[in-house]
Structures are given as C-alpha cells and as structure tokens.
C-alpha cells in the first residue's frame, strides 16, 4: 500500500503538484490520466523517490524519498538510446541492482534469456538498441523492468509513441508484470485504454487530483467531463466496455 499525504511539489514559484492525497493498493494497476502539464510525470518521479517533495509518500511503511532499499522499475516516456549497447546488455542492466554493477549471475543470464523470449525479443539480443523500432524499444524497456523483479513499476506514457497494434502488445506485456504481483502505476493519454487495463484511475488537472476511484466509476463520473473541459463523449459498447472520444460538433 502506498499512501500519499499532502504531497506538494514546487519548481521555484511554480506549483507542479498541490495537496495530493491518494492511496494505491498493492498488486493493482493504477493509471494517472490528465492533459499535458497536469503534473503526472512529476508525480511518478516523486513516487520513484528521486524528486524532492513536501508532504509524505509512504510505501509499505517507508518514506520513499532517496530510499534505495525499494526495488522500483521506471519506464520513461522518452528513453535515452545508449551508444553501442546490445539488446541483451540493455535488458541485463535491470539486474544491476541485484547482481552489483558489472556482474552477471548465471541466474540473471537465464532470467534475461527467458524474458527476451517472453517479450518476443529473443533473436535480437546481439543487435544494438539503437537499431530497434519504437515498438521493439518499448518491449526492451518492459523486458528490463521484468528482469528487475520490482515490487512497483512506474511507466510514463508507455504507449504514446506506438501504433494500435504495438500498443496492445505492450499493454499485454505490462499485464505480465501484474500477474507477478507487481504494483503498476502508469500515466496514459488514452483514457479508453486506461479504462480497459487499469483497475484504478486517478484524473489529474493542473497539479491537483480531480477524481480518484475504480476505473468504471471514474469513467462514468460527471466530473470527468469537467476534467476534460466538457470536450469528450463517453459511450458504452454492447460488451459494457466504455469508449471515450473527443467531442466535435459536426457541420450540419
């Protein structure tokens, strides 16, 4: 259980996050949804522990700031592409904290090989990371997170750069993490996809939490309209699955 109390973050005069109070249950997928500039990425950094904040974020009894005892994986929206690094080396970095930097236990090597198979990257292990396509890169990032065997994984817009086909593939890969009992917190632009995969949605707007609850409730809440300035329509498919699309007045 992660408890966030009165979390406030300022960059100089600018308030990025203000009085955030939420609880995130273990082993669930929570999605942070909101327009650009809502403070989602900063919130993820604070949850990681690398971002100074006021208030408190307590993860299973421990304050998270600069707490290196936790094992948290982070998947950035815009990864840096290392020069001259092979895919297997890149994924193996996920083991650095367990094996010690520069070491590779034989257990790690087998795990990395397994995860590469699982994520469909086996066969590309000797390629340079820079040769991967966008979808493959995203899978490599998730593979690295999987071998890290974290208790919590933070994903910043894991699907934003991908076409629909690859979005589904990556989201299914993230579900692999959930099957292993990992708590997942991700930001996502696409609220329909968020509703489809996440159990809980937190809607943010200008540094504040507008809505926080189980996906179904949040999707059908009238406040969701407010968060998106009344510019979305929520439909429900025959299967009961919600679909959110942008509102556009059609010409007569």
């Amino acid at each position: 259980m992660i408890k966030v109390n009165d979390l406030t973050i300022r960059f100089g005069e600018r308030i990025i996050l203000q009085d955030i109070n939420v609880e995130i249950a273990d082993g669930m997928w929570t999605c942070l949804v909101g327009p650009n500039g809502a403070g989602k990425t900063t919130f993820l950094r604070a949850l990681l522990g690398s971002q100074p904040y006021s208030g408190s974020i307590v993860d299973n009894g421990f304050e998270v700031y600069r707490n290196h005892d936790r094992n948290v994986a982070f998947v950035p929206q815009h990864p840096q592409i290392p020069i001259g690094m092979s895919v297997s080396e890149y994924v193996m970095l996920g083991r650095s904290k367990r094996d010690g930097w520069g070491n590779e236990s034989s257990k790690s090597r087998h795990l990395v090989a397994d995860i590469l198979r699982l994520t469909g990257l086996f066969g590309m292990q000797s390629q340079f990371v820079s040769q991967l396509s966008g979808g493959e890169m995203q899978r490599a990032l998730i593979a690295r997170a999987l071998v890290q065997e974290p208790t919590l994984i933070l994903l910043d817009e894991p699907t934003s750069a991908l076409d629909l086909h690859h979005q589904i593939a990556v989201l299914n890969n993230i579900e692999l993490l959930k099957e292993r009992g990992v708590t997942i917190i991700s930001t996502m632009h696409d609220i329909t996809l968020a509703a489809m995969y996440a159990e809980k949605i937190i809607v943010m707007h200008e540094g504040k939490v507008l809505l926080d609850g189980p996906s179904d409730q949040v999707i059908h809440s009238p406040q969701l309209q407010e968060a998106f300035e009344n510019r979305i329509n929520v439909f429900t498919l025959d299967s009961g699955r919600p679909v959110i699309i942008a509102k556009k007045d059609l010409p007569n």
């Binding site: 690398s50 982070f74 990864p79 840096q80 650095s96």
Partner: peptide
C-alpha cells in the same frame, strides 16, 4: 546512458 530516473531506479 539511461535517463536519470532509470539510473536512479537501478541504484
């Protein structure tokens, strides 16, 4: 070679 957040998460 990774982003600072990834580096931090790897210790």
């Amino acid at each position: 070679m990774l982003t600072d957040e990834e580096a931090y998460s790897l210790g």
